[in-house]
Structure formats: structure tokens, C-alpha cells
Simulated scan of single mutants.
Amino acid sequence: MTTRLYENPIFLEHLTPPGHPERPDRLRALNVALEHPNFAPLDRRQAPQANEDAILLAHPEEHLFAVMRQIPEEEGEIRQIEADTYASPKSLQSALTAIGGAMAAVDDVMTGDVSNAFIAARPPGHHAEKATAMGFCYFNSIAIAARHAQRKHGAERVAIVDWDVHHGNGTQDIFWNDPSVLFCSTHQMPLFPGTGKRDETGIKNNIVNAPLSANVGSDHFREAFKSRVLTALNDFSPDLILISAGFDAHHRDPLAQINLVGEDFDWATGRLMEVADKFAGNRVVSLLEGGYDLEGLAESAGFHIMRLMKG
């Protein structure tokens, strides 16, 4: 079946200060890569904007209002809302559209319209805790997508796999007490945000962390993925797999020191698709998270999307 890709021009209008790593050029670089003829079969759709109530699937109303109050109104204004997290006038609309794309992709795979989907969106979401915006993130899009799969489609066991080089502290925080969601993460440690130790396991061992030391490469990543992530997934037997697809573990990335190459993301994608084939009716939804070297991001995301397209 065709792989669906959700995109929207609004994602380029979420602005950050000059020199900030999470910038619109990230998506422009990915779009250049997707112009290759190999990606012609992609079913490219415009991501819809979610309504604000969707945020309440994973966050309290007070958090939504706190973020809304920080959104500037004056064109061209960029406001710092947290140490490294900024907002511009279209940032809330961009974040709601990232969530809308994720929810639409869940609808697509749960109804069998497509087997898998990728959401090329920003801002990212996996650092957003229940009531805290941080790490370039306002709202946790992948957590909202998981809750949407449960509420609308009756998904009983949702697995979230996060291979961003920074630990998905927000996703861990939201699902710490919820054994219906398995959260698995590979990440560099020590590194921002400082969470993600192996002994952080959640209330029912539904949190599986596989921290990696700085300067390791493909072999260590693949071994951790096989021994920790894939073992947990097979024990959990998910009916939906969601991927927090950060590509900042690429060796070119300026924010970390893990030395992966594009083929590693191809390999990891393939392994998750095998699990999805075994347990989840091939249902996979992938959301863009980090990846701050433009060439590394384009290469890695290209490998990832191409593997999704192979079905």
C-alpha cells in the first residue's frame, strides 16, 4: 500500500531566532530530498489543523492556556517562552497542524486506508511534558496521537519508539503510569534533558530506556535497539506503532555525539515494520522530531521514508 506523507506550508511559518537549530530550513532540506523520482509514489497530503481540544488528550487545560498566552501577535515578533523554546505569531497554528497531521495519519492506518504514514511537521513534540513546554516543544504530538488511537479507534496496546538522540522526557512523563502504552527510547546520555536512565521503567515496566554513550556508532545503536527495544515490543505485541523519528543521532548533527548514518535509520525502520507486520496489521505512524544538520536530516529521513514506502 502507498505511504502517506502529511505536510503543510504553515510549518515554515513557525519562526525561531537566527542561529536557532530548530528552523524552517529543516523542512526545506527534506523537501529537496523528496523531489527525487524515487519518492514520486508518495501520497502527499496537506495536514489538517486540529482543534484546541485535541491538546487536552495529553495535557491539562492550564498548559494549553499558558502556551496560548505566550504566542505573540505582532508580525515578525519572536518571543522566548522557555530556555530554548520560542514562539512566533503562527507557532500555535503550526503546532495544532502538526497534531492534526498526526491524528489524521492515525485515522488512516487504523481504518486501513494506508499501511503507514510520515508527518513532516514542526515544531517537534517529544520534550513537552504534561504541563511543561521545553526543548523546542509546546505540545506532545505523539502522545496526543496515541490517545487519539485509543479513544477513537479502540487501540489497546500502543507502542511509541523514540530514536531521537535526546530522550523523550515528555512522552515518558505522560505515559509513566499507563501500561496500555509502551515507550521505548534510544538516546545519548548524559545529554539534554538529563532523563532516560535504564532504571526509569514506569509503573508497570512500560518504559524501556536504552541510553547510549557519546561517540558510539552503528554497532552500539543496533545492539541496544535489538536487545532492549525489539525485545520489549515483541513482549508487548502492539496493535499500533508510533515513531518519534528524530534524526539528530546522525554523525553530522551539531547537538550530539552519536555517529549513525542514513542506513541505520533504514535498518531500524525495517525492524519496526517487521514487528508491525507481526502484531499490528502493518500500522506504523512516524512523526518528525529532531535533526539539525540539514544534510544529515535529509539523508536520514530519506532512508526512513523510503523504507516505509517499501511496505
Results as ranks from 00 to 15, higher is better:
residue 200 E to I: 02
residue 199 D to R: 07
residue 221 F to Q: 02
residue 216 V to F: 05
residue 206 N to P: 12
residue 186 T to P: 03
residue 228 R to Y: 10
residue 188 Q to M: 12
residue 201 T to I: 13
residue 227 S to C: 07
residue 210 A to Y: 03
residue 199 D to I: 09
residue 186 T to C: 13
residue 217 G to P: 10
residue 192 F to E: 09
residue 205 N to P: 00
residue 226 K to Q: 13
residue 209 N to M: 04
residue 194 G to W: 01
residue 200 E to N: 01
residue 225 F to I: 08
residue 201 T to S: 06
residue 222 R to E: 02
residue 202 G to R: 04
residue 208 V to W: 04
residue 209 N to G: 02
residue 198 R to W: 14
residue 227 S to T: 13
residue 213 S to P: 00
residue 208 V to H: 02
residue 199 D to Y: 08
residue 207 I to P: 08
residue 206 N to T: 15
residue 206 N to V: 11
residue 217 G to C: 05
residue 204 K to H: 11
residue 209 N to Q: 11
residue 199 D to T: 09
residue 198 R to Q: 12
residue 202 G to Q: 04
residue 209 N to V: 07
residue 204 K to I: 02
residue 228 R to V: 14
residue 200 E to Q: 11
residue 219 D to E: 15
residue 227 S to K: 13
residue 210 A to F: 02
residue 186 T to W: 02
residue 207 I to L: 05
residue 220 H to P: 07
residue 216 V to K: 01
residue 203 I to Q: 13
residue 224 A to Q: 06
residue 185 S to T: 08
residue 199 D to G: 08
residue 195 T to F: 03
residue 191 L to C: 07
residue 225 F to C: 05
residue 214 A to I: 04
residue 217 G to A: 14
residue 198 R to E: 14
residue 200 E to H: 11
residue 191 L to T: 04
residue 209 N to R: 00
residue 218 S to A: 15
residue 210 A to K: 00
residue 189 M to Q: 13
residue 210 A to D: 05
residue 222 R to Q: 09
residue 221 F to I: 01
residue 219 D to Q: 06
residue 191 L to H: 11
residue 191 L to A: 08
residue 197 K to F: 05
residue 224 A to W: 04
residue 208 V to F: 02
residue 219 D to H: 14
residue 187 H to E: 12
residue 227 S to I: 08
residue 227 S to Y: 11
residue 197 K to I: 10
residue 187 H to F: 12
residue 196 G to D: 00
residue 204 K to G: 10
residue 186 T to V: 13
residue 221 F to L: 03
residue 218 S to C: 10
residue 218 S to Y: 00
residue 222 R to M: 05
residue 190 P to Q: 05
residue 204 K to Q: 08
residue 200 E to G: 03
residue 206 N to Y: 12
residue 197 K to E: 11
residue 216 V to A: 04
residue 213 S to Y: 10
residue 213 S to W: 09
residue 210 A to E: 09
residue 187 H to L: 12
residue 186 T to E: 04
residue 209 N to I: 06
residue 216 V to W: 03
residue 205 N to A: 14
residue 227 S to R: 11
residue 220 H to A: 14
residue 187 H to D: 08
residue 213 S to G: 15
residue 189 M to W: 10
residue 208 V to G: 06
residue 197 K to V: 01
residue 207 I to M: 15
residue 215 N to H: 15
residue 207 I to V: 14
residue 189 M to E: 03
